[in-house]
Design a protein around this nucleic acid. Structure first.
Lengths: 147, 147
DNA sequence: TATTAGATTATAATCTTTATAAATAGTGTA
DNA sequence: TACACTATTTATAAAGATTATAATCTAATA
C-alpha cells in the first residue's frame, strides 16, 4: 500500500516534468513512510547514510519542488524549523506543548469559517490552517510522577 | 481608551514582579497601539529614535517576557520572522497570500474542535490556532489590472 | 540613599534557510 | 547506444532571525 502511494507520487512528478533523481526519490520515500512530520535536517540526517555526499541544499530544494507540486505541505509552528507532511488527506494536527509530538486529527473541514471570512473581509479565500495545542498523555504522566 | 489598556497591562506587569523599564514600557505601548502585528525588527526600528542605544536583544527579551506573562501572543506564519499581537480579545487572522497583510477576524471560538481533539487523542488541550489565507481586495484588483 | 536582583547593552555565536557557480547526471532524440 | 541539453546536485558562502554571554547599569524596595 505504501508502494502504491509512492508510485502515484512518482507519476505525478513525471507529469509535472520534474526529474526523478535518487535523492529526490529518497526524500519522497522517506516522507511518505514517516509518521512524524520531520524537519529538513531530520530528513538530511536520515538519508546521510545512503547518500554520503548529499548536500543540505538538496533536501531543501527537493522539499520546495515537492511543495510547489502539491505533494508536500510545509508546517510552520512556533519552533525554529519547518516540518513537512505529505499526508495529502485532509486532516489537522494536535501538538504537544511539552515534547512537540504531533498527532494527526481528523475533523470535518471548517468551510463555514472560510465562507464567513470571505464575506466579512472581502478576501478571496484559498485555504486555512488550524492546530490544537495541549499536553500529550505521556507528558501528563510525567508531570504527576514528579510528586 | 488606549491609555486604559496600557495602564491595565502595566499593572499586570507589576503584579508579575516584572520591572517597568522605559524600553519595556515603550515596546508594550507600541504593540498596544499597533494594528499591524509587527515583527521584532519593526518594533526595534520604530523605537530606535527614542532609544538610540537600545539593543535588538532588548526587544526580543521584552517580547519573551510579555509573552510569558500572557500579554502578547507570538504569531508564527510561514515567513521568516515571528509577529507579535497584544490584542487580548479573542479573534482569528486572515492573511493575504500575495502581500502578507493581516486582518483581524472575529468568529466564535472553536470549542467543539478542542473538546473532540481531547476525546480522540487523549491530549489535555490548552488552546488552538487558526488562520485563513487568501487574496485581499487590493491584490485581487492588481491581478485583473494586468490584462 | 544604598542595596541588589533584574534589565540593558554590545557583541558574538548559533541555527535555519537561501543564493551562487561549477560539476554532474537524467531524459529525450538521432 | 551515444549525444546533447538542461535540470539537479554539490560545495560553499551568505543572509537573516534569534539566542547566549558578560559587563554595565538601573528600577524597586527598605
Amino acid at each position: 500500500m505504501s508502494e502504491e502511494r509512492l508510485q502515484k507520487a512518482v507519476d505525478r512528478l513525471k507529469k509535472s516534468g520534474v526529474r526523478i533523481t535518487p535523492q529526490r526519490h529518497a526524500v519522497l520515500d522517506y516522507l511518505l513512510n514517516s509518521m512524524v512530520h520531520p524537519t529538513a535536517d531530520e530528513i538530511y540526517k536520515a538519508l546521510e547514510g545512503k547518500f554520503p555526499n548529499m548536500s543540505v541544499a538538496t533536501v531543501y530544494n527537493n522539499l520546495r519542488v515537492l511543495r510547489e507540486i502539491g505533494l508536500v505541505r510545509e508546517l510552520t509552528y512556533g519552533d525554529s524549523s519547518s516540518r513537512f507532511d505529505c499526508n495529502t488527506t485532509d486532516h489537522y494536527h494536535v501538538i504537544c506543548d511539552s515534547c512537540g509530538k504531533i498527532v494527526d486529527f481528523h475533523y470535518p473541514s471548517l468551510d463555514e469559517v472560510e465562507s464567513l471570512a470571505e464575506q466579512v473581509t472581502g478576501f478571496e479565500v484559498s485555504h486555512h490552517r488550524m492546530e490544537v495545542y495541549g499536553k500529550c498523555e505521556d507528558c501528563q504522566k510525567v508531570k504527576t510522577q514528579k510528586h
